[in-house]
Design a protein around this nucleic acid. Structure first.
Length: 458
RNA sequence: GGCGACGUAGCCAAGUGGUAAGGCAGGGGUCUGCAAAACCCCCAUCACCGGUUCGAAUCCGGUCGUCGCCUCCA
């Protein structure tokens, strides 16, 4: 039985989707800058959720949004003197490249806020009609704002385990806003001069942040969905507000059956974040340790625990990948090594069933790798065990069977290796070693074995 | 102030009642022309104090420390 920790209940609950197709909504990025490895953690984690459920026989429909209009996008576009559309297109492309290289499977739909405005307006109108929202004049705009009336929903705060009273303390009202209650939040913002805006019953304006996810999950996945995921920092206020909006609008509860949240990446003792400026981009991480390396680094920690970034841990992940790859690719003799494959399969499944315990699942892969290496050393067949290693690796999104990038110089390296073999046959050790050392300096590692010499990128 | 998380070997990180998975690094071997890889062996009593229990890293209480959310954030 697959179980997950549900943020709403804080308990480990059996996974029970409502229908044949598992509906999963994951909060996507705001494309105004390059994504960092904290984002990578979130998307890799939910990619593994999807891969694992699929491996277990479920069909998953995955929707992930792009928040393509917000303050940061407007600011950044103004600063670069380009349109918000141009800015957004640039960073969606960068994100897409990052995900491809991380081997993150694409979502089924990538809705964008700016293309779903009518749906959001319809929802806001419904909320006003049934008393959960109200229009309010704004001194910052010629148009009105629309706010969600938090006090109208009794269980507001359930996800983040907060009371409405406690929310009063932290809530802030910007100058010029006319909220009934400080904790009320914007569904629609009246347009300020020079901002992109859309026509609405309340004049020109743009949607608030939270309403987009409510509108898009409703449109693409229905009033009630199985899984909603995102980073832990979205629990409040974003996801709390999504629940409030969607449930108030549809009248159906619960909006989400299973809330999943991943913890954050720490830089030393602090959270990695854009605002602190202490981030490593996905692109840089990929250059350093590759897609598998980054994934392994992320998955060696449980998704609900903070993951510490240091250069050393990233290097460790890279070395770990090399180890798994060696076992997966070492020239395999056909046949069964006498390895109890079913036992490994069961251990892996048990670990993953238990709230996606990827650290334990990886331990199973490493144990299996050791068995494969041992079989090879003893001259036993190991092809089946290697097949299992690849299969389980794939569930975690690891591409162990092939180099991630084709190397253009491969034919030349092969040639050098051949020449070196002849030198070795002639016992010209010094020259042979020079070839090896020179290739090493170019990050090509040679390994001699009884069956010949192989090489791999460092 | 409110809510929450965490503190396990040099580093990272599982384990939530029966005497500590895994990875990286390190040490010693085997193999090798040498090296690399691989294999074998070694390397922690779980922040601290007290309690419950036959038995606790794991439950309870306290102390110290660290971090997060409450404002944009994966």
């Amino acid at each position: 039985m697959i179980r997950f920790t549900n943020t709403l209940t804080r308990t480990l609950d059996p996974f029970q989707p409502a229908g044949d197709v598992v509906t999963m909504y994951v909060c996507g990025i705001t494309p105004y800058d390059e994504s960092h490895i904290g984002h990578a953690m979130s998307y890799v984690v939910f990619d593994v959720v999807k891969r694992y459920l699929t491996w277990r026989g479920y069909h998953v429909k995955h929707v992930q949004n792009f928040t393509d209009i917000d303050d940061r996008i407007i600011e950044r576009a103004n600063r670069l003197n380009i349109t918000t559309d141009e800015l957004v297109a640039r960073y969606i492309a960068a994100y897409t490249d990052d995900m491809r290289d991380l081997n993150v499977l694409p979502a089924d739909v990538y809705p964008r806020a700016t293309r779903e405005v009518p749906e959001m307006i319809e929802m806001i109108e419904g909320l006003i009609k049934n008393g959960f929202a109200y229009e309010a004049a704004s001194e910052l705009s010629e148009s009105s704002d629309v706010y969600y009336r938090v006090s109208a929903k009794k269980d507001y705060g359930a996800l983040s385990h907060r009371t409405q009273d406690s929310l009063l303390a932290g809530a802030r009202v910007e100058p010029g806003e006319h909220k009934e209650h400080p904790a009320d939040f914007a569904l629609w913002k009246g347009a300020k001069a020079g901002e992109p805006s859309w026509d609405s019953p309340w004049g020109k304006g743009r949607p608030g942040w939270h309403i987009e996810c409510s509108a898009m999950s409703l449109k693409y996945l229905g009033a009630q969905i199985d899984i909603h995921g995102g980073g832990e920092d979205l629990v409040f206020p974003h996801h709390e507000n999504e629940i409030a909006q969607t449930e108030a609008y549809t009248g159906q509860q619960p909006f989400v059956r299973l809330w999943l949240h991943n913890a954050w990446v720490k830089m030393g003792e602090e959270k990695m974040s854009k605002s602190l400026g202490n981030f490593i981009t996905i692109r840089d991480g990929l250059k350093k340790v590759g897609g598998d390396g980054l994934r392994l680094w992320i998955l060696t920690s449980h998704y609900r625990k903070p993951l510490t970034f240091t250069e050393e841990t990233l290097d460790a992940a890279k070395a770990g990948v090399a180890r798994l790859r060696t076992a997966a690719r070492a020239g395999g003799d056909a046949g069964d090594a006498g390895v109890d494959l079913a036992a490994y399969r069961e251990r892996f499944t048990a670990a993953m069933d238990d709230d996606l315990n990827t650290p334990q699942a990886l331990a199973v892969l490493f144990d299996l790798a050791k068995e494969i290496n041992r079989a090879r050393d003893e001259g036993r067949g190991m092809a089946q065990a290697q097949g299992l290693l690849l299969e389980l690796g794939e569930v975690l999104g690891l591409r162990l069977e092939q180099p991630e990038q084709s190397i253009e110089a491969a034919p030349f390296i092969d040639l050098l290796v051949q020449v070196r073999d002849e030198l070795r046959a002639a016992k010209q050790w010094q020259l042979a070693d020079r070839v090896r050392d020179s290739l090493a300096a170019l990050d090509v590692v040679l390994e001699d074995s009884a069956s010949g010499t192989t090489w791999k990128p460092a």
